[in-house]
Simulated assay, not measured.
Amino acid sequence: MFVRTVYAVGDPQKIDAAIEALKDEGRMLLAAQPGYRGMGLFADRELGKLSIGTWWDSEKARQDSDDALHTRRSELLRPFATAITIDNWEVIAASRPEQTPTGACMRMSRLDFDPMDADLAAETMRGMVMDRLKAIPGVIGVAMFMNRSAGRSSIGVVYRDRTALAQSRGPVAQLRDEAVGKAHSTVRSVEEFEVIITESVGDS
């Protein structure tokens, strides 16, 4: 499985319009693309940030969809976004939520590593990190992505509500510290978002 992420920042007062456009027209456009396997839409309304992840069953499907949609995607985001970053990933491990309750939240951690250590980072994520994250109370979904050649990874964890997210901060900080030491990684950023949409399509 492969994922494209779009990270957009802009005026918080314009974020709701962007969210509605992505929920409506954006989802319809994605669903019409071959190989589409679902999406996640996450928002920080206070600071004006959107994180969007779309899932694809092959690298070709991901690239073809980007070729088909990038112009319209920019048009949907332009009224809100002042900066847009697009990244492509392979899925290292995932346990996607079957249902996401109202009030669910997501924490995203981005890490850097030497590309020579990509296998070590992937092994650490699939093993120690995945198992311990899933054991944290309130966790309902985990997704781990990697760009091996760039030496970057991203971990998104969905929690059932904001209380569970807050209570997890200490245990996750401890786990993060252990994991970066074991995988020879460094932390680039840690961010928290409101869950707007998570959906799976087909066999993903």
Rank of each mutant, 00 (worst) to 15 (best):
R4K: 14
G10P: 00
K14T: 01
A18H: 04
A18S: 08
E20R: 15
L22Q: 12
K23A: 05
D24G: 00
G40E: 15
A43H: 06
D44I: 04
R45S: 03
R45Y: 05
K49P: 06
D57G: 05
R62G: 08
Q63N: 15
S65P: 14
D66E: 15
D67H: 07
T71N: 09
T71F: 08
S74N: 06
R78H: 10
P79L: 12
F80Y: 07
T82E: 10
A83S: 12
E90V: 03
I92A: 14
S95K: 13
Q99D: 11
R110M: 13
D119Y: 08
A121M: 12
M125C: 01
K134P: 11
I136Y: 02
P137V: 05
G138T: 05
G141W: 00
V142T: 13
M144R: 02
N147T: 03
R148E: 06
A150I: 07
R152N: 07
S153W: 01
V158D: 00
R160Q: 14
D161Q: 04
R162V: 07
L165N: 01
Q167T: 03
Q174L: 10
A179N: 07
G181P: 04
V187M: 14
V190S: 10
E191Y: 03
E191S: 15
E192T: 09
F193S: 06
E194A: 08
V195Y: 02
I197W: 00
D203L: 13
D203V: 09
